[in-house]
């Protein structure tokens, strides 16, 4: 017993002496710590609203789990929930593997100037805001002869004039179009991490492969792709934790005809708050937000476990 106490005292002393020793590092860390407490943890107290009826004026009325009961009964919530997983998940896969393919292509470019120019061009769309992207694609996909795509389809005889396709207003085409636009905007940016990995591959391996008679495709298949696998897994795992966070890219392309195909949890919360035609019940929208966060947290834990297995270390 007394041994234990002695150990505890000594540990405390060690901790204190470490803090004193590294006091300047602790001081430097202090603003970050305070910032995190103020802006990440303190707002979490708002979670209690999920258990209340609150319209923003009178004191919240405790309603227990009523908001959650209502939420789980609402088809709109479930549509938004599964849409979030589907849209975000598929978007992640398309963007990641699109970035891998693009990286492999860029890696094969020999002319350095051309390679740099191509890289710059594919990075650029990432810097367009979603609002600008929506305007651009609204024009490109317009269901008239002024729309670039419809005009092209008419000219090559796939559709007739007057039968233009309303890409953004058609509930069957909306998702494919959405994935294409996302790929356009984010695939290039996603290549950065893969290009960095490719740059780290020892050139001697390629030379040895060439001596052994390997062709270009064989080198890609047996050297480049295996070298990328770990990075691909890391990127997928890191991004999987964020798939519940989906708003702007969907919101700017949403319209009444595609709401069931496009509604995700964050747009659902937005509409419940601002388009209800009445004072919103912040209790309900907080409850939806809480469920979203809990699912997100579960995904983070899951990804952490996967990461530990794949990389030998976690992401948190």
């Amino acid at each position: 017993m007394s041994d234990n106490k002695a150990v505890t005292k000594s540990t405390k002393r060690n901790l204190l002496s470490r803090i004193v020793k590294y006091r300047w590092f602790y001081l430097m860390f202090l603003p970050v710590f305070v910032f995190a407490i103020l802006f990440y943890y303190a707002p979490m107290l708002g979670i209690r609203l999920a258990f209340t009826d609150f319209k923003g004026v009178k004191d919240p009325i405790y309603v227990g789990l009523a908001n959650f009961e209502k939420m789980f009964k609402m088809q709109g919530f479930w549509d938004a929930f599964f849409n979030t997983l589907q849209i975000s998940g598929l978007k992640l896969i398309i963007n990641t593997f699109g970035a891998v393919i693009l990286s492999l292509l860029l890696n094969e470019v020999v002319n350095l100037k051309y390679k740099k120019a191509a890289q710059t061009i594919v990075y650029l769309p990432h810097f367009f805001s979603w609002v600008v992207a929506a305007s651009i694609f609204g024009l490109i996909l317009a269901p008239s002869q002024q729309g670039l795509v419809n005009s092209f389809l008419t000219n090559i005889g796939i559709i007739e004039k007057g039968q233009e396709i309303y890409f953004l207003g058609n509930n069957k085409l909306w998702r494919p179009v959405y994935y294409v636009i996302n790929a356009w905007r984010d695939t290039g940016w996603g290549t950065i991490i893969f290009m960095a990995t490719l740059a780290g591959i020892d050139t001697e391996i390629y030379e040895a492969a060439s001596i052994d008679g390997a062709g270009r495709f064989q080198k890609i298949r047996f050297i480049t792709v295996p070298a990328l696998v770990n990075t691909i897994a890391t990127v997928l795992v890191l991004n999987l934790a964020k798939i519940m966070n989906l708003f702007e890219s969907v919101f700017v392309f949403q319209n009444d005809a595609v709401i069931r195909q496009s509604d995700v949890l964050q747009t659902y919360i937005y509409r419940q708050t601002f388009n209800s035609g009445a004072l919103p019940n912040y209790g309900y929208t907080t409850a939806v937000g809480l469920v979203k966060s809990l699912v997100g947290a579960l995904l983070v834990i899951m990804c952490n476990q996967i990461s530990k297995k794949l990389r030998g270390r976690g992401i948190v």
Partner: peptide
């Protein structure tokens, strides 16, 4: 109205 009008209007 606070509870249901958001979903109703969307529908």
């Amino acid at each position: 109205m606070s509870q249901y009008n958001g979903d109703l209007t969307t529908l």
